[in-house]
Design a protein around this nucleic acid. Structure first.
Lengths: 341, 341
DNA sequence: TTGTATGCGTTATCAT
DNA sequence: ATGATAACGCATACAA
């Protein structure tokens, strides 16, 4: 049998005392008589009383809750970031409401709206693939709602950011491929509206330029994180009259599918083609050949996003606030896929 | 500058009308004069008014929110289940509060408590690895709180369940290995307190028995989903005087690490050892050799958990309610790892 | 030490 | 067509 939840009113009535006494007893206020407190506690325990968080939050106008919006939790990077964000938030006494945009602008905007209505005190966001207009987030910032972006950020948003130097990371990864003998270097980038993809692309180009290699436009293809598209683009690359002998992919998701497509076509990695990727998912180790990949300090990034957000939330004067961008270091983890044997 | 959120009171004051009129206009009630409504809507838009969901929920004693507790979202199976649960819930007008137990009983119990305080209307739970005592969930059920378990369930809980026939699935997987020539069949099971692991173990044993093979205790080892432990157990298996020539692992997480450890030791799959696993993560395709694995109908399972939960939530008489267990079909997806070439 | 009254933002009931 | 008021569950200022 289901019944309405127990309230302090129920306890008060049963004990024939006032609700304020119950409230005080429950919260261990010192002025309450020991006997009264004991009786209240006993009954609360017996009835399995659970304080109504809604009522508390409404009264205090504080929820100590932060909204997190990520593209998709089945990407390792985001679920790992969520873990570290949750941990840091919990330590600080905040809880987390997680939403997935599923790479859709519309869902992202809807989630922001809903989280706002649920009175979250701030947002940690990594933008969706299809978000080319950031008006929805900019409005948040304009309203003074604390926002921190990570990874998938945008230039136009005046919020705190926790990112890596995508340009330099891609530059280094590309140089690594060049140094290992690649002559024809291709790249599987993300969708063109994704800033981090473009930054990585720029790093790739800078590396080519620094090595005095002219860019071959046919070697630069865009993917959208769907296996179908990646497969198509990989095949397109290898069908070129001069197929590449080196490949940079801007995400492990893309690399996994690409490696699969390559194997199907009989392209041997690293013998025929060297590969370097981004994100350093745990699986990189398990693949054969194992996959070289750029790692981000997920643990630190999660802590940093929370730190920046709480700084905003707990700031007394919000007028003098200047958004900060924290650039974290990356590491190129070199494995079998990027070294000739 | 941050300011207190806009309320209907603000709008009422600005327009010099009563809050009830604002409330009615906002909700499109027919009795409101067109001009009044227009003015209210305009101002609400301009001030970016967001109704306070806390207040609404408190008043209605309904949140249309369900709590989902899973061990860890970085396991593919759970993030995929979450996606399908969220989708189904959204379609039905409910939203989802997700929590990770991180395989800890304590966190699981704490999350239940917190979600209860947040007035969720029901729970969808997959138990943590360390949950050997289900008192926390049983109490929920006793209180009449709607609960649906999936995958990691327990016999002692009188709630709806959405599961697969673990015994038969393991039986079939084991038979498949036997039919492909395995003589010495080992199994890497999960922790002994995990019912689904024991069921799969029982299926393995039944298959051996049906083939007239005596069980070799040394071939049955338990893992706890940590790579370290799995690595250790895999090594232990291969160090036996008579190492196995077939291996059943009760989760892809375990299989991935085991395959890695095998490769390190120079054990060739499938030449020296055939492997079958559980969960059919997308990566199974990408590994080399690709990994045979038992798949569960995640999409349908998500829909089913939500359907059963909403049935409970929306039931008028909760007295006559009898918990239902929905057993979904599995499919053994055969890949390279389980067939001699 | 305990009780009474007020308010958080909203909807609903009852007037007008 | 609109307004005043009570209620949801809780915390707290003020009274007693």
């Amino acid at each position: 049998m289901r019944s309405a939840p127990v309230t302090i009113k129920d306890i008060a009535r049963a004990l024939n005392i006032s609700i304020s006494t119950v409230s005080r007893a429950l919260r261990g206020m010192p002025e309450i008589h020991a006997d009264t407190r004991a009786a209240v506690m006993r009954l609360a325990e017996e009835l399995d009383y659970q304080p109504n968080q809604l009522a508390k939050n409404l009264l205090k106008s504080r929820t100590r809750t932060i909204g997190v919006i990520v593209p998709n939790l089945s990407y390792y990077y985001f679920s790992a970031m969520l873990n570290s964000i949750e941990e840091a938030a919990m330590q600080a006494g905040y809880s987390v409401l997680v939403c997935q945009s599923n790479e859709s602008y519309l869902r992202e905007a809807t989630h922001i709206q809903n989280l706002l209505r649920s009175q979250v005190e701030g947002f940690i966001i990594s933008l969706s693939r299809d978000t080319d207009n950031c008006e929805h987030v900019e409005r948040l910032v304009r309203k003074g709602v604390p926002v921190v972006l990570f990874d998938r950020y945008s230039d136009t948003i005046a919020a705190d950011k926790v990112i890596v130097n995508n340009h330099d990371a891609a530059f280094n990864a590309t140089m690594h491929l060049l140094n290992n003998g690649c002559q024809r270097l291709a790249v599987l980038a993300g969708p063109p509206q994704l800033l981090i993809s473009n930054e990585r692309l720029a790093g790739y180009r800078a590396a080519l330029a620094s090595a005095g290699i002219a860019e071959n436009k046919a070697y630069v293809l865009h993917c959208d994180f769907t296996p179908e598209r990646t497969r198509l683009q990989t095949t397109a690359l290898m069908k070129l009259p001069e197929p590449p002998d080196g490949l940079l992919t801007i995400s492990d998701r893309i690399a996994f599918t690409a490696l699969f497509a390559l194997k199907e076509r009989g392209v041997r990695v690293p013998d025929d083609l060297l590969v370097v990727s981004f994100n350093n998912e745990p699986l990189c180790d398990f693949l054969s050949p194992s996959l070289s990949s750029v790692s981000q300090p997920i643990q630190e990034m999660g802590m940093e996003t929370v730190r920046l957000l709480l700084r905003q939330i707990e700031a007394t004067d919000t007028d003098t606030y200047v958004p900060e961008t924290k650039v974290m270091g990356t590491e190129l983890v070199i494995r079998e896929s990027s070294q000739k044997r």
